[in-house]
Amino acid sequence: MYAELDTPALIIDLDAVRSNVTEMAKTAARHGVGLRPHIKTHKMPELARMQVEAGARGVTCAKLGEAEVMADAGIGDILLAFPIWGEPKLRRLAALRERARVRVSLDSPDVAAGLGRLGGPPVEVLVEVDTGQHRLGRPPGRPTADLVAEIAAVPGVTVVGLLTLAGHAYRSRDAAELAATARREGEDLVETAALCAREGIALREISVGCTPTARYAAGVAGVTEIRPGTYIFNDTTMMRLGVATERTAAARVLSTVIARPTPDRVVFDAGTKCLAADGTGSPGWIRAAGLPHLHLDFLNEEHAVARLEPGHEDELPVGARAQLIPSHACAAVNLFDVAHGVEGGRVATELRVAARGAVR
Rank of each mutant, 00 (worst) to 15 (best):
E98V: 07
M44R: 07
V148Y: 04
E98P: 05
D13H: 13
R36K: 13
R171E: 13
V123E: 01
V208N: 00
P283Y: 10
V21M: 03
I258L: 09
R183E: 02
M239G: 11
E66A: 09
H38K: 00
L254W: 06
V123I: 08
R252G: 00
A62Q: 11
H168Q: 10
M239T: 07
P283M: 05
T230C: 12
L35H: 02
T349Q: 14
F82H: 10
E187Y: 06
N334Q: 10
L241S: 01
D174S: 07
G34F: 04
V243F: 04
L254F: 09
E301I: 15
L178T: 11
R204K: 11
M50T: 09
L195A: 04
G116V: 12
M1D: 15
H293I: 13
T272I: 13
I78D: 07
P139C: 08
L5K: 11
V266L: 06
V333C: 00
D278V: 14
N234R: 08
R171S: 12
G55N: 07
I232G: 10
F298Y: 10
P155F: 03
A322V: 15
G55A: 01
R287W: 01
N234Q: 12
A221N: 14
A95I: 10
A145K: 00
R138F: 07
P88N: 04
V220C: 03
P261Q: 02
R36V: 04
I11M: 04
A193V: 06
E4I: 08
R97Q: 00
D77M: 12
H134R: 09
M44C: 09
L324D: 05
P122G: 07
A175F: 14
V257Q: 03
A288R: 03
R173S: 14
R97C: 03
A71R: 00
G345I: 07
A304F: 09
A112Y: 06
E66V: 08
G271W: 01
V157N: 04
I232T: 14
G32R: 01
H134L: 06
A288M: 01
R138T: 13
A180T: 11
D188Q: 06
S105V: 10
M24Q: 10
T237N: 13
V208T: 14
E4L: 07
E68C: 06
R204Q: 04
G284D: 01
E46C: 08
R36M: 12
G229Y: 01
V17M: 08
R138A: 13
E246H: 00
S327C: 12
T7E: 07
A100W: 02
K43L: 11
L335W: 05
R57V: 15
R183S: 02
T22I: 13
D146K: 13
L106I: 15
E46H: 07
S207A: 15
T131S: 05
T280Y: 13
A214S: 15
R204T: 08
E177P: 09
R171D: 13
L178K: 10
T211N: 09
G141P: 00
P83G: 09
R346G: 11
G311C: 05
E46R: 09
R173T: 15
L351Y: 05
V338W: 11
N334L: 06
E350L: 15
G114S: 03
A62T: 10
R215A: 08
P83K: 10
V102L: 02
